[in-house]
């Protein structure tokens, strides 16, 4: 069955979201098994130059829609452009990264097309009837639902971040560039300001020191330990809630999943939404007051005590 698979390539001000490339590579693998075709769909402003290289990651073809209003994600503009393209070309499958923007876009498009949308899948394939089958993790990642689309076209799924690695195995893509011709006066949402800090992508960090509520939100000591270990800093959700650190450093099911060799987890109890984010960490060391907190189950080494007493001594020893 020759399936026409589309992958939404997310970008922001010309910078391509790397998780989109991993989806392209996986989609190409799935397409090659079933004789399908992969199209990358790239919306942006002056981004056509990025298009040919998307072929190397798996796109047979890239459709670029160029418009100044598409420079960054805008829910109405993106929905309108995608809706028009889908009506015209009728893809069988549409995939996007499960970023905030990817969920926002597909969440809306699924209703527009009255079709099925699977959420943050960690695996996907196409069955003999051409139905999209995905693995949707739930309940802290310990249970996976095998979900199948049974109605509507295109069949949609958002793909969990960092699951599929971008692989440079293929050639350049055929590129088609379209003009957006969007009229800003038609939109009801308008960006008036954007504030961005330099942040690091801790999903790629080799070592991470994670601050939980037990640190009281004091990142000074955490930072000192991180520095001596050559580690980056992450936080649990409550600390991001109180604004101690940006959401980009939040670990767990609503944040980042670590792939580190080492995580040192300080003052975290081990809530399900958090521990799903440290599943793939090689070695987990925790320090916590509570000798029986759930975190013990998810640790290789679990030190029981006051982290404000232990850490300064630990830093001293590591220096020596």
């Amino acid at each position: 069955m020759a399936l026409n698979m589309w992958v939404f390539i997310e970008q922001d001000e010309g910078v391509i979201e790397e998780s989109s490339l991993g989806i392209l590579s996986k989609a190409r693998e799935v397409a090659e098994e079933g004789g399908g075709h992969v199209t990358g769909v790239l919306l942006g402003s002056n981004v056509a130059g990025e298009a040919p290289r998307l072929g190397r990651y798996g796109a047979h073809r890239v459709i670029v829609v160029d418009d100044p209003l598409l420079a960054y994600y805008h829910s109405e503009a993106y929905t309108r452009v995608m809706e028009g393209l889908i009506r015209e070309r009728n893809p069988d499958i549409l995939l996007a990264s499960a970023t905030r923007n990817g969920r926002d876009l597909l969440g809306r498009l699924a209703v527009v097309f009255n079709t099925g949308l699977q959420a943050h899948v960690i695996h996907f394939e196409v069955d003999g009837e051409g139905s999209l089958v995905g693995h949707v993790p739930g309940f802290g990642g310990n249970i996976v639902a095998v979900v199948k689309n049974v109605k509507g076209r295109p069949q949609m799924a958002t793909v969990a971040l960092g699951v599929f690695r971008a692989q440079e195995l293929w050639g350049e893509a055929e590129v088609e560039v379209l003009r957006g011709r969007l009229d800003p006066s038609k939109f009801k949402v308008r960006r008036v300001e954007v504030v961005r800090r330099e942040t690091i992508d801790i999903s790629k960090s080799k070592r991470v020191v994670v601050a939980g509520m037990g640190t009281g939100g004091d990142l000074k000591l955490v930072g000192e330990l991180a520095k001596i270990l050559g580690a980056d800093i992450g936080v649990t959700r409550p600390l991001a809630d109180i604004g101690v650190a940006p959401r980009d450093l939040q670990i767990g099911s609503t944040g980042v999943s670590l792939k580190a060799d080492l995580a040192v987890v300080l003052g975290a109890s081990g809530a399900p939404h958090f521990v799903s984010g440290i599943r793939d960490v090689k070695t987990v060391i925790a320090i916590n007051k509570d000798p029986e907190a759930p975190m013990l189950e998810y640790s290789d080494y679990y030190a029981v005590g006051d982290l404000f007493e232990i850490i300064p001594k630990l830093i001293e020893k590591l220096k020596g």
Binding site: D12, Y73, T99, R100, N101, K188, V189, R190, R191, V192, E193, V194, V195, R196, R197, E198, T199, P246, R247, D248
Partner: peptide, 11 residues
């Protein structure tokens, strides 16, 4: 909230 920070939108 967006990646790396936030945006202010009028709607």
């Amino acid at each position: 909230t967006i990646k790396g920070g936030y945006e202010i939108l009028e709607v």
